[in-house]
Design a protein around this nucleic acid. Sequence first.
RNA 1: GGCUCCGUAGUUCAAUGGAUAGAACGGCCGCCUCCUAAGCGGCAGAUACAGGUUCGACUCCUGUCGGGGCUACCA
Length: 569
Amino acid sequence: MLLKKILTERIEAIMSRSNLDGMPALIQNASREEFGDYQVNGMMAAAKRLKENPRELAGNLKQALESDETIEEIVSKIEIAGPGFLNLTLKPDFLIRAVNSPPPQTDNAETVVVDFSSPNLAKEMHVGHLRTTLIGDTMARVFEYQGHKVIRQNHVGDWGTQFGMLIAYLDSAGTSADDLKDLEIFYQKAKKQFDEDPDFAEKSRSYVVALQQDQPDVLVKWRAFIEISMSHCEAIYSDLNVTLHQKDTFGESQYKGTIPAIMETLTKEGLITKSNSALCVFLDEFTDKNGEKQPVIVQKSDGGYLYSTTDLAAIRHRAHELRADRILYFVDARQTLHFKQIFALARKAGLCPPKVVMDHISNGAILNKAGKPFKTRDGNTVKLADLIKESRERAKEIFLAKNDKADLSSVEEIANAIGIASIRYSELSKHRETDYVFDWEMVLSMEGNTAPYLMYMYTRSKSLLIRSELTDSDLPKEPQPEGPIERRLVLKMAQLNDVIDSVSRECLPHLLCLQLYEIATAFARFYEELPILSSPEKDRLRRLAITSKVATKLSNGLDLLGIKVLEKM
RNA sequence: GGCUCCGUAGUUCAAUGGAUAGAACGGCCGCCUCCUAAGCGGCAGAUACAGGUUCGACUCCUGUCGGGGCUACCA
């Protein structure tokens, strides 16, 4: 049940029977609590178009709404305010019905390909991979929650020139299996030798060629390397509760067989131009100021392919073999131009049917504390494995400081859960498009708008329910809120489905974090200010019933964020 | 140079063109004989600058200043 949708439909239906036919009602959450629950903003715009007085239009609409039974059953109060706002207050029984309503299921289930995480297997995962991995994971969960069929695609970088270098280094004297424990250092050492030692560089290049020609002995080494690297990634996914598994990995190397067919298609469509001995596609859409078309290189002058070509092959695979209705790429904003180009190219070459939607869901960059780009070359990179370890240790410290007589066997479990939840929430609670400053203190913070806060409110709600010794069957099904504190809490819960719907449409998980936080703060207030277990039976049962719904909403919402709740902390 | 994104409290983040720009952290002041103080209440504090469009602008447009990113053979 989507409150805003219901209000909009019903109000616009009434408007359509007047001189306001076809005008939008523009329903919004009330900007201040004293204005009620929702506001109708459309009267000012309508007045402008009709050249009438907005307050008069608002007055007319108010009358029409008040005499309509579809409004009467859900709205308790309508007020005209300011230049022509209509402020609506909803009926408590309608609010609680909204709280009880099932999650918003999609009307038409689609097959959604979600491309996310996609780390470069030549290096270890670092904080730069956090956003795509966690936002993609959360959106995949949200789409599934709504009834879509989700196909996760981890488009790992397991192919290309750098692997020749790594294999050559793996192969060189004095390198033991131990060296692979730290992939980042292994990569840096290999890179260093590549840059300093011409013989080694030459050997690396020959490995690339051998790899591309499927030379068995080299392939064995390559596979060994990929396996080790993937196991690092899988450990991270498992720790972070990311829903990516072996079956979701479909790396660049898997497209190498289909690239010739892609090239053939491009050629057949007459799109290929040879320029400076590289094969390029020049599209009309991409020109500089002088009208010079900008190229997309699909084959290098040495015959090698680039990631553009691989991405085209991936599009065809996803549109045709995977039968996607939508293909979503969770990749950072630096690749905006790249995706514009390959989407346009894929359309032109007929690799993706017009009805299949392709979208680049971009995210902002990571900056250091000075506001400068957080680049790997700086040597400042923070490995995800280290971040996870640090966060768990921090959580354990805090837990022990707060619980001196804690059962030691549960300490590790609780600290681990909180540590992971903190990392996920700190990332997901930010708007995905803005650049973000990486700060250990921020990520590891456990006060205020953080995962531990939400988890703590959940444990408080559970604690009340356990102490009450009642179950849901003992409690009223539709506890109508009484008083402003209960009302506010129930309203925030009633709006959760609207928010999940927005998250899904705009791929903005931070909206869900915000709503859950508001439910949690409203519950904190409820918990602090109202007696629950010690209140008279009628109040006790009603408040416990509301508490039970809080527990459910928090747990379900956090689950969508990939955060597991704890019964105690 | 061209294209593009971004400048909001000391800091980190919010705000489908709507009413008095919200939080959190940090700072200051309060609250545990009472359902878990990882909590609650209160105070101080911000839209880079200049124009414009609009009944109404953090939001849209133009310019200025400042900072990213992308821009032909890395991915």
